[in-house]
């Protein structure tokens, strides 16, 4: 069975839901600990949401230096699929695996609501089960969700089709270009602020729209 690592830092909140989503998708979740420089041979890694190390200094700024993250950065550069959700997205940006940064929401409020996203790119390790233009509903819940990057970086992301998800309806945080998620040049590393792992079953979330991300990576692992 395909194994997908789920990292836990001190202050991580959504590792349990991420592991559950992996299980729903038909893979085996493997718990990875922040202090261990060991990926346990997993085929993909999820960096889940929460407030790693209290988000002191900046969101994700301290987590990027955790021993497990050095392994993730090396493996990701070698093609390992990595998904960063919320705080995980912030960590991947701080670690340099994804460009840009996440700043305090423009409205200065913690925003927690069901959010509609448009899937802009399906040729990534985490979105192949979607159709371009799909509108999906998943929860967003964060304080620092405003994606920001230099004008040239944003132009590059847009030009290369590396915006994976875009907010539709209303933009919850003032993100440039309504950007909710982006990917690396290879499409193997994806980060997004909203929480697909909270939307895998209508019993416990607004939809099952998020499950496709956890199922997609199974294809990426087989085809790699």
């Amino acid at each position: 069975m395909t194994t997908v690592g789920v990292i836990t830092f001190p202050g991580t909140l959504d590792d349990t839901d991420a592991a559950r989503a992996v299980r729903y998708a038909g893979a085996e979740p493997v718990a990875l600990w922040h202090g261990d420089a060991d990926l346990r041979g997993v085929a993909a890694v999820i960096v889940p949401g929460g407030f790693s190390y209290g988000d002191y200094l900046r969101a994700g700024a301290i987590a990027r230096f955790a021993p497990v993250m050095s392994e993730v950065v090396t493996a990701a550069r070698g093609g390992l699929p990595v998904l960063g959700i919320c705080n995980g997205f912030q960590i991947l940006c701080e670690a340099g695996l994804l460009p840009g940064a996440l700043l305090r929401n423009a409205g200065l409020h913690f925003v927690c609501r069901d959010q509609t996203l448009r899937v802009e790119r399906t040729s990534t390790a985490w979105t192949s089960r979607y159709t371009e233009g799909d509108e999906i509903v998943v929860p967003v819940k964060n304080m620092d969700g405003r994606f920001t990057a230099s004008r040239s970086t944003v132009d590059e992301l847009e030009g290369e089709g590396r915006v994976v998800f875009r907010y539709t309806g209303s933009n919850p945080n003032g993100s440039v270009g309504d950007i909710a998620g982006i990917c690396s040049a290879s499409g193997r590393v994806v980060g997004l602020m909203p929480h697909p792992e909270h939307a895998i079953d209508p019993l416990t979330g607004p939809s099952a729209d998020g499950l496709g991300m956890f199922a997609s990576v199974l294809d990426a692992v087989v085809s790699a």
Binding site: L57, R58, C93, E94, G100, A101, S150
Partner: peptide, 8 residues
């Protein structure tokens, strides 16, 4: 490398 993020 740590106290600031040069992106922002």
């Amino acid at each position: 490398g740590f106290l600031s993020n040069p992106v922002i």
